[in-house]
Design a protein around this nucleic acid. Structure first.
Length: 216
DNA sequence: ACGTCGATCTCCT
DNA sequence: GGAGATCGACGTA
């Protein structure tokens, strides 16, 4: 967790550092986990695409004005989206977790999603449904309740791609800003371009049998 | 009280 | 690749 509280790191650096961290959710149905493969940075006060743009403050976005490590979950189009607040409470920056590569609890995720393979977690609304993350997690602290981030079992991306964020039209320079970070070649990335990597884009693939299931 | 609008997903062609 | 689903939060009245 210290990486989130390192005040020397920018939000962009933290967003890249989260790639390869293991995200874990514990529920009474069981535990699910997966490696983060896609993140987006939202830079509060200056960023027109952020909910907290111009320090706007409403009950929905209160969590963005809490300490680093606070979970911010909000709903849109009947989906839940997971963010992690990463700076002190006066700086409303958050990182959207957009995709994970499943690790454990795959059977439970399959039940919840009623889908298989890449479709389990290759999108921000999909991964929250698969892992059982919802509004009850909003405002809670990471590693304190039922949602955890582990660096112990982490993987390291061979290469990180930087692209424009998804679904941000008409926001001037913020539409094109390279604030989306993906593990290059990982098949669970939500909007893919470029070719897939046989090792899922990780540096060391130890004993893990990789199989890319084509779906579309 | 009501109209608008998404940091999306699914199904269909 | 595109339309429709869908729903809560927010702004305006």
């Amino acid at each position: 967790m210290d990486f989130l509280f390192d005040s020397n790191m920018t939000t962009e650096e933290i967003a890249q550092n989260l790639l390869g961290c293991l995200l874990i959710k514990v529920t009474k149905e069981g535990t699910c986990s997966g490696w983060i493969v896609e993140t987006e940075a939202y830079l509060g006060e200056l960023d027109e695409a952020a909910h907290s743009y111009a320090m706007k403050r409403t009950p929905r976005i209160e969590s963005m004005y809490k300490e680093a490590g606070t979970i911010y979950v909000y709903s849109m189009h009947a989906h839940q989206l997971l963010n992690i607040v990463v700076q002190e409470s006066t700086i409303p920056h958050a990182i959207l977790i957009r995709a994970i590569e499943p690790h454990t609890g795959i059977e439970l995720m399959t039940q919840r999603r009623k889908k298989e393979g890449l479709l389990l977690t290759n999108g921000p609304g999909k991964l929250t449904k698969a892992m059982g993350i919802d509004k009850k997690d909003d405002g809670t602290l990471i590693n304190k309740e039922s949602l955890y981030l582990s660096q112990i079992e982490r993987k390291k991306p061979k290469k990180i791609d930087k692209t424009a964020r998804i679904g941000i039209p008409n926001k001037g320079v913020w539409t094109d800003a390279l604030l989306r970070y993906t593990v290059s070649g990982n098949p669970y990335i939500s909007v893919k371009k470029g070719k897939l990597d046989n090792g899922f884009g990780w540096e060391c693939v130890n004993n893990t049998i990789m199989r890319i299931e084509e779906t579309k």
